[in-house]
Design a protein around this nucleic acid. Sequence first.
DNA 1: TAATATAGTAAGCGAGGGGTATTATATTTG
DNA 2: CAAATATAATACCCCTCGCTTACTATATTA
Lengths: 144, 144
Amino acid sequence: MHFRFGFLSYEISHVIRQRFNKNAEIIGITHSQWRVLVHLSENPNCRQVDLADILDIKPITLVKQLDQLEARNLVRRIKDSDDRRVYRLELTANALPVMQKLWDIADRVEAEVLGALTPDEQALVIRLLCRVKGAICGKEPDMS
Amino acid sequence: MHFRFGFLSYEISHVIRQRFNKNAEIIGITHSQWRVLVHLSENPNCRQVDLADILDIKPITLVKQLDQLEARNLVRRIKDSDDRRVYRLELTANALPVMQKLWDIADRVEAEVLGALTPDEQALVIRLLCRVKGAICGKEPDMS
DNA sequence: TAATATAGTAAGCGAGGGGTATTATATTTG
DNA sequence: CAAATATAATACCCCTCGCTTACTATATTA
């Protein structure tokens, strides 16, 4: 018998992404852009290369997401005065109310998806997944 | 405070997919194709439209996956004699040893990713996620 | 000063997924 | 039975997300 944890987590996160995207369509933000906004809000004033690392994507991938978010006036690139190669990233004032709406959507979708579990079970599964993520975060599997 | 279950499940499943894809690259099978094979093995002799529904993808998306799997001689389309519009899908004999290798990879990746949890906790988180998936499977969120 | 490293970006590619329209075949309805 | 409708698979074209490679500008190191 095999575990199926991979399929389970994939299929559940897929449903969450789909529902988020559908609900956030009128705002014009995708789940991937949403990830950028949230992680940026938690790491203000960071460089693009840092944010890409946090998001576990390549810098060039982040460039395009930022282009779109900047075009929507949600994010600003600010030239660093010490190192003129780098941009510092920050959310615009305009981003705050938009993110509030997106958090509402995200919370609602999650509540629906987790509806089959009691609040205690919800907290438990999140705690367990946090440990899983913490353990693999940044670490490659042992290839020896 | 927000839940983060969406990000957690997404990021964990993303790591699993990446590691699976890297390990299965020499076999030439992606995680998406792997999903097709597994769900087909559990629903032998089904129609394409049924399998697409099980996988929660559109039939046209499945067509391309099946084209690749058929080219790799892992899957066969068989004309249904009762309804000449439909194909019945089946794994080839050739698929069995390949799937054995892929299960080995999948199991190994999962064991690594879940390594931070005790066996009891692993079983627990899988049980909880099974309930979550069972509850949302096929159901749209209540939009009333 | 020369070699090397780093931050951001352009160009172009591929996987995965989808919308719409088409063809062939069933099914339902007048 | 004939006509309208529904269904299964698919062709064509598009999108998003992510990548590799190569380039420019700037820092850092030898």
